[in-house]
Design a protein around this nucleic acid. Structure first.
Lengths: 345, 345
DNA sequence: TTGAAAGCGCTAACAA
DNA sequence: TTGTTAGCGCTTTCAA
């Protein structure tokens, strides 16, 4: 008399026995591989359902795929990232692939930990959203597993990239404000010291785009960039500085929506009104921007599209298609709301 | 002459050879298992570093642990969940465990897909945050892998639970408002039909707590609950209804911060001011509530603590400690801000 | 079209 | 204390 053993997981062997075929046959059916008659497929399918069999991913990992896609998100709090994530999960919904998020990636070290963990787990593909790691690190990851980098400029032969045209986005904002009649349009940037990263990060592009657009509108004399950080505090500090200017700007283009939130706070504290005394625009078109009491003019980056494109490129690579690396560049759109209006003067 | 083969991953065999010991020895060192001399440990450690060896999780999964914890988050957009997540990742930072998030779990079907995927991947433990699945489903998961359920009342011998005392939270809000002099305090609830779930969901507790507290303050005649949903739209709709009451409430207790956002919107549209004409309180103390221009009175659930407790319970179970299931109940605190004030009358 | 069998990288029972 | 070795569940080569 044996004690009732802990229930063992149903394996491919059980299915094979139940269907009276070989394990090879079951494996073939599972993977939709060539070389199995329709009758055999049907038989195996039935046994799989009856027994409630599910493939063991660890065992699969030793020989083939894991049907797992890892997504590295730097900051789960940034309300822009869920859009990208929806684009990713949405296009993977009807496939066997499962998405897992590596959370808490603030800084190079944390990014390395998460990506290594994904590689250790034999994930089939990795999507890195707005990584801060060095190019060398990204290429290290990409050399181990198919990789797509979202939201960073600068390409590599080892990975594909999907990014928003930040130059164009900045230009849309400046064009909008200039069109309303603003001349003194200031910009709040994210301060970046690392020169290597500088060229690849979206914030630098936005600042460049701002400068270019200002020149294009004949406003180069009014170019005014404050470098703080892409956080609410950064926006608050930046706005404080701008408000003490002898000739106060009539409009502020914040490099991100969260930054604009800080600007709104500082402007409110200074007893000024938006857009009466000062217009404010953000970037990312987050849910926060759309929230009625705030109603922030912002730039929409088409996060869904970014996610969809990333998946398309990734599956293509996983399927083994050898091709030069791609760069997808998406066009942003302006969403004018109530924080921007003609200057009062 | 061979073509340069694709670089093979360093395995335990390579390490063993390099250190001139057996693979068993390496395995023991890796797992900190009993039976390896300090000299051997040192030797193996050195080889591991020199070769850059990392354990293959899939291979580990076949025999032992994967050092992976899966967290199921129903809605990545809910600004309360990152708090819990921080609590989880924070307490796992100095361990070998890695956290992965299963995203996009809206509804029972999606929850089942994600949890099955976690089980297939031999994750060592699962944390389910505010799941909507039936008790039977939760127990199915828990019978396959150590599980902790966060944010749901009602216990099971198969899994541990961590929850906030929603009755107390509701009581804090009502007490605060009543203390300010309000009598007509209304509540916006999340509509729930499933009777089984009804008893376990926090929203029901909050509504019950509201009713109990109203009675305790002798305000049972003023009890007024509108059932919509825990979304911004739900708050908007609910407020619309409340504002058409012949005797308009002077304070609204929204069951969640997002709901309160919708209330603020509706109140603003009606040309009323907060807190001048009507006080508004939320629940969750999200970053949104703390945001200065909004400054919403809310209830803090100590998300960090929830996450920390969940991990503690999970690791305990994973370590194989057999014990009856635990229920951890945390006490919320009230965070009064500028959306609540004495009634104007 | 079908199946037998080797082996992926690791852990753990057992032997030395 | 140290090493040998048998699998874990799957994929894939190769033979029938």
């Amino acid at each position: 008399m044996e004690p009732p053993a802990a229930r063992r997981r149903v394996t491919i062997v059980d299915v094979a026995r139940h269907a009276r075929v070989s394990t090879t046959a079951v494996s073939k059916v599972l993977r939709g591989a060539y070389g199995a008659s329709p009758e055999m497929r049907a038989k195996v399918r039935r046994s799989i359902d009856e027994l409630g069999y599910r493939p063991h991913t660890g065992a699969r990992a030793l020989r083939g795929q894991t049907y797992t896609i890892g997504v590295m998100l730097p900051d789960i709090r940034n309300p822009f990232f869920p859009e990208i994530l929806d684009g990713i999960t949405g296009s993977l919904e009807d496939t066997e692939y499962q998405v897992f998020l590596g959370p808490g990636c603030n800084g190079e070290k944390a990014e390395a930990r998460v990506t290594e963990a994904m590689i250790d787990r034999s994930m089939d593909g990795i999507v890195m959203v707005a990584p801060v790691s060095s190019r060398a690190r990204l290429e290290h990851v990409a050399s181990a597993v198919p990789t797509v980098v979202i939201g960073r400029h600068g390409s590599s032969p080892l990975y594909d990239t999907v990014a928003d045209d930040d130059i164009e986005g900045a230009s849309l904002v400046v064009g909008h404000l200039a069109g309303l009649g603003h001349r003194r349009i200031a910009h709040i940037d994210h301060h970046e010291t690392d020169p290597a990263r500088l060229a690849e990060m979206p914030n630098a592009r936005r600042a460049d785009g701002y400068r270019q657009a200002m020149r294009a509108h004949g406003l180069e004399e009014s170019i005014d960039v404050v470098s703080t950080s892409y956080t609410q505090e950064g926006g608050y500090e930046g706005a404080k500085q701008l408000l003490t200017r002898p000739h106060r700007p009539t409009a502020v283009f914040a490099g991100a929506d969260v930054v604009a939130m800080g600007v709104l706070e500082a402007v409110g504290e200074a007893g000024l009104s938006v857009p009466g005394d000062i217009s404010v625009a953000g970037y990312d078109n987050t849910t926060l921007a759309a929230f009625a009491p705030i109603s922030l003019t912002s730039v929409d980056q088409a996060g869904h599209e970014m996610g969809r494109n990333a998946v398309r490129l990734l599956l293509d690579r996983i399927a083994g298609r050898h091709r030069p690396s791609s760069r997808v560049m998406l066009s942003p759109t302006l969403v004018p709301r109530r924080t921007t209006a003609p200057p009062s003067s």
